[in-house]
Nucleic acid binder design. Structure first.
Length: 201
DNA sequence: AAAGAGTCCAACCGCGACCAG
DNA sequence: CCTGGTCGCGGTTGGACTCTT
């Protein structure tokens, strides 16, 4: 019987990658514990899923993040906060893990630097960086966002019953669903003009 | 050349959501 | 309802690599 201790953790070998890919090609990318067993991998299903999603999956784009992608990440992060999977969903071929790493190693520093420069220009009472990084779209942000998206769409939307003057803090009880709102799956990647406008606001 | 500091990223962990039985 | 299995997410860690002194 396999114990917790026996399970292989750590870096994946080429052989393990090949076995995993082979089993997924046959059985599909689901039931990860079964896949791990079928592949004869001494790993948890969870580990297999992560390896597949972040490394082995077809159409994974590896290598440098382009300026255009970086710009989009910055805009979406400003809008969504640390919702990496949502952000990754707007960047074809990029994974949430990759974007999260890129943010933590590159962009957070960049923004920190920009804030420093701003602060030295006389502003006071700003949120700390840590708080800023954890920031989610604020109430005012959401108001503006809805207005911009409405004007962009000029049509019925899933948020048509949202009352902008509502005083509740919790967005989930403001008459619309934040996750639905941030589901951009029907919009053209890299062309979210309304987001750009909102961020400019 | 060596050692310590800093950077990067693959992978793990814990938690919550979802769903079938 | 409850429970156990599964999945997906965001935070964190570990170690390899690079840079600096």
């Amino acid at each position: 019987m396999q114990t917790h201790r026996d399970v292989n953790k750590g870096a994946w070998t080429v052989e393990e990658d090949a076995k995993l890919a082979e089993v997924i090609a046959i059985h599909g990318a689901k039931r990860w514990n079964t896949i791990a067993a079928k592949a004869g991998l001494n790993r948890y299903g969870k580990s297999c899923r992560l390896r597949w999603m972040n490394y082995l999956r077809p159409n994974i784009k590896r290598g440098n993040i382009s300026d255009q992608e970086e710009d989009l990440i910055l805009r979406l992060h400003k809008l969504l906060g640390n919702r990496w999977s949502l952000i990754a969903g707007r960047l074809p071929g990029r994974t949430d893990n990759e974007i999260k790493n890129y943010w933590n190693s590159h962009l957070s520093k960049k923004i920190k630097q920009q804030l420093k420069e701003k602060d030295s220009g006389g502003s006071s009472g700003r949120l700390g960086f840590a708080a800023d990084q954890k920031r989610r779209a604020s109430r005012d942000d959401v108001k503006k966002m809805v207005e911009v998206k409405r004007s962009e769409e000029n049509t019925n939307s899933t948020i048509c019953n949202f009352n902008i003057e509502e005083e509740e803090e919790d967005h989930s009880i403001m008459g619309f669903n934040m996750d639905d709102f941030f589901d951009f799956s029907n919009e053209d990647p890299l062309k979210l003009e309304w987001i750009s406008r909102f961020v400019q606001l």
